[in-house]
Design a protein around this nucleic acid. Structure first.
Length: 756
DNA sequence: CGAGTGACTTAGAAATGTTAGC
DNA sequence: GCTAACATTTCTAAGTCACTCG
């Protein structure tokens, strides 16, 4: 990031943030009805405010949309094409490989056009076809094949691998590696690991040429509860039909959860439950409050206790069974490589748990059957078999998508997928590409910032709004903020969907001018609360945007994510709102690491620095967590340990002193040695104490902040890898096993001088 | 355009596994 | 060995964004 645009410190000062979403939600509760007609509001606003002039123009209320539309047309767009081309060549990855940012846009299915590839998997002779092109310039739909000695070798290597398709050293790893973690072991990758990042990529929207898998694992069938576990209605025992009973158990299992006390949850549950009842049950059971699930609840608690109390052997058996399932269903073959599947189990039926004030919480999530399932695989693969006596909904062979299995979920009607693990080629490439796009933004961010600052002065309202929104997205790392269907989901917003009620303007606050106070619920109903000093021009614009609006009106009434992203696309190929989050997160990490790391520090201190840098990012991105339930207690425990250690240190020092005195008097070898060993002891204890104190600081600072999300999704792993190499910190201290698998590409390729 | 949808990434909570300290 | 604390994994909801269709 260059001058003039640094993230304000208050961002990094957690003091101004709260994770107090409860209160907050209440605050908005009564307003819910108000913005029901959101879309209409927007329309109304538009015609009301469609002026592109300043607020003092007297006739602003009557400027109309059509005028604006005209402007829109003659105004900006379509240099797009040239820019597009211009930029395409611009970026090559640091390893010298040509790079592509866009994968889609080519229609014809690849497989058909290259019949020689059809038997690709079965006859690994066709090594050529393995190569994938990384450069998409002018990509005719047939990718070029660059043949080099290097890739020839690789192809051979691949061939070997195929012969013995084994998951990459799975089980042994678990114990072996986990146990030695943090000790020696180090970055040594097992020999057979496939380095997909050294190969060419598909460039024409084709995601794979061969895909074979075993299909999903279905949820286990419902097991009726024993007949001595009773359900009571209005105090009287009632034997439920299996269907009704199953749904009842879903509720019983959640009885201890706050959800079941919420009105909407209960209402939705009861409505859906009744649908599963026999007509007889339906006529009897008319009030949820008269239902007594407590025996069921107790039964399940007992069950889980029993599970905990199982013997080692029993547990081992279960573990083995899980492992067997994993081996059978947890992997697929994609283009000659065995790859791990992320979620091969179908989501079991249950009660929908939305986040925040979700209008659909408590609804029944129905059981998924084979008839609901679409299978995606290669034509020439061994198709997965549906369970006996059932059929798949469909089997298709679409190699333009990455999923293996899909079904439509009944709560929102959206599609769910089974896809590959983050360590897979297909996910890894995409991830890598994401960071490359962010790095390209780094190169032109100054230009873009200059532009939006200029646009704050535009005479067109829509441009000003766009520019202010972009400023927020850049400075505060806000999400884009798509509009959502009213009443279908919790009321949450992002940048473009902010409403007037989410901002408070303060001409002056705490000695700072032009402060904007944000208070809204974002993704997952996590509260975003922040007070930000902004530039005068932004402030004035906000006043203008808010003028004559109701609290529930849209702040940016002439803007949405589609308009914004179209604009961004013109500024840089592949640029969208979320790229700013990635860019700002990664650049912040890099800066913070530079600032905070001291080469003389020991490893724990360096790790603290790393965590602090990571934390700065998490704060920027507003990644919060509920403070762990045991937080206070564990903090107290730690303090006790520290005190004890201090005590111990004092003792050791006393002993050292007396040993010294002793040595002075006796002047013999033995007492000298004693002094030495006491000295060592003191040192050791001091080190231990420091370690504990560092730990305490780290934990305290982390109370409500979740580091995982940014580490996994926003921080270019090569920054962390380079940092580890540069400062001699073992990579295992930063990334656990799963993370190392996901970031294998970065660990392999980043050197200590890597710069984001 | 604008609504709807499909595919994919990002997200925090809950479940489960591991470890350290008694 | 037991258990509480902590770390990791799993789960699936909730976003983003491109595309299609009328």
């Amino acid at each position: 990031m260059s001058g003039g645009h640094s993230h304000n410190d208050s961002q990094i000062d957690s003091g101004s943030r709260h994770n107090d979403s409860h209160k907050h939600k209440d605050k908005y509760k009564d307003k819910e009805h108000k913005h029901k007609d959101h879309k209409k509001d927007k329309e109304r606003e538009k015609s009301k405010y469609s002026n592109s002039e300043h607020r003092d123009s007297s006739d602003k209320k009557h400027r109309d949309k059509d005028k604006e539309r005209l402007k829109l047309k003659d105004g900006s767009s379509d240099k797009q094409k040239d820019k597009h081309k211009e930029k395409k060549k611009e970026e090559r990855s640091f390893d010298g490989k040509p790079k592509k940012e866009k994968e889609n846009g080519f229609e014809s299915p690849f497989i058909k056009s290259e019949p020689e590839n059809d038997d690709f998997y079965h006859s690994p002779k066709h090594e050529k076809s393995l190569k994938r092109e990384r450069d998409d310039d002018d990509a005719e739909f047939k990718p070029k094949k660059i043949k080099t000695e290097e890739s020839e070798k690789k192809a051979k290597k691949r061939k070997q691998e195929d012969e013995d398709i084994k998951p990459k050293k799975k089980t042994k790893d678990k114990k072996g590696e986990a146990a030695t973690d943090g000790k020696k072991k180090g970055k040594k990758e097992p020999e057979e690991k496939w380095k997909w990042w050294e190969e060419e990529r598909y460039t024409d929207g084709v995601k794979w040429k061969f895909l074979e898998h075993k299909g999903p694992v279905f949820a286990p069938p419902y097991e009726p509860i024993p007949s001595n576990v009773k359900f009571y209605y209005d105090g009287k025992h009632m034997k439920l039909s299996p269907g009704a009973e199953e749904v009842a158990t879903f509720f019983a299992k959640m009885l201890d959860h706050e959800y079941t006390t919420k009105d909407i949850f209960r209402k939705n549950f009861f409505k859906d439950w009744r649908k599963e009842m026999t007509s007889e049950e339906k006529s009897k059971i008319s009030d949820l409050n008269k239902c007594d699930f407590s025996e069921m609840s107790e039964y399940f608690k007992a069950q889980s206790e029993a599970r905990k109390a199982m013997t080692k052997e029993e547990k081992q058996k279960i573990k083995e069974e899980n492992e067997r399932m994993l081996q059978e269903y947890g992997f697929c073959v994609m283009d000659n490589h065995k790859e791990r599947i992320a979620n091969f189990r179908i989501e079991p039926p249950g009660l929908f748990r939305g986040r925040g004030d979700h209008p659909k919480m408590g609804m029944l999530k129905r059981r998924i059957r084979p008839e609901d399932i679409i299978i995606n695989c290669s034509k020439d693969s061994k198709h997965p078999k549906p369970p006996p006596g059932t059929k798949w909904k469909e089997v298709r062979h679409d190699n333009k998508v990455t999923w293996l299995v899909s079904w439509t979920e009944n709560i929102q009607g959206s599609i769910k997928y089974i896809m590959l693990n983050p360590s897979s080629r297909i996910k890894g490439e995409k991830d890598w590409q994401k960071y490359e796009t962010a790095r390209r933004l780094k190169k032109c961010v100054d230009r873009i910032r200059a532009q939006y600052r200029e646009d704050w002065k535009s005479k067109e309202m829509r441009i000003r709004q766009r520019a202010v929104a972009l400023y927020f997205i850049d400075k505060l790392a806000l999400r884009a903020g798509n509009e959502k269907e009213e009443g279908e989901t919790a009321d949450t917003v992002g940048c473009c969907s902010l409403r007037v009620e989410h901002l408070t303007l303060h001409q002056e606050m705490d000695g700072q001018e032009y402060v904007v106070e944000f208070d809204f619920l974002g993704k997952d109903s996590i509260r975003y609360y922040n007070k930000v000093p902004v530039e005068k021009r932004v402030f004035k614009n906000l006043q203008l945007f808010m003028e004559d609006k109701e609290p529930e009106d849209d702040l940016f009434d002439r803007l949405n994510t589609s308009i914004l992203n179209k604009h961004l696309q013109e500024l840089m190929d592949g640029l969208t709102a979320k790229v700013f989050r990635t860019y700002n997160a990664s650049i912040t990490l890099q800066q913070q690491l530079n600032e905070l790391t001291t080469s003389e520090d020991n490893v724990p201190a360096k790790i603290l620095s790393y965590n602090r840098a990571n934390r700065a990012v998490a704060i920027l991105c507003n990644h919060q967590r509920a403070p762990p339930k045991t937080f206070e207690k564990s903090m107290l425990n730690l303090q006790t340990k520290i005190d004890a250690k201090k005590e111990q240190l004092a003792d050791a020092k006393r002993e050292l002193k007396s040993a010294k005195a002793d040595a002075k008097v006796r002047r013999d070898e033995k007492s000298k040695k004693a002094v030495e060993s006491k000295k060592k002891a003191v040192q050791r204890i001091e080190e231990q104490l420091m370690k504990l104190e560092v730990q305490a600081t780290d934990r305290e600072e982390n109370k409500q902040i979740a580091l995982g999300t940014s580490k996994l999704n926003y921080l270019d792993p090569r920054i962390s890898v380079a940092w580890c190499k540069k400062f001699g910190v073992p990579i295992e201290k930063i990334y656990n096993k799963t993370q190392r698998e996901k970031f294998a590409w970065a660990i392999d390729m980043a050197e200590k001088d890597y710069e984001f």
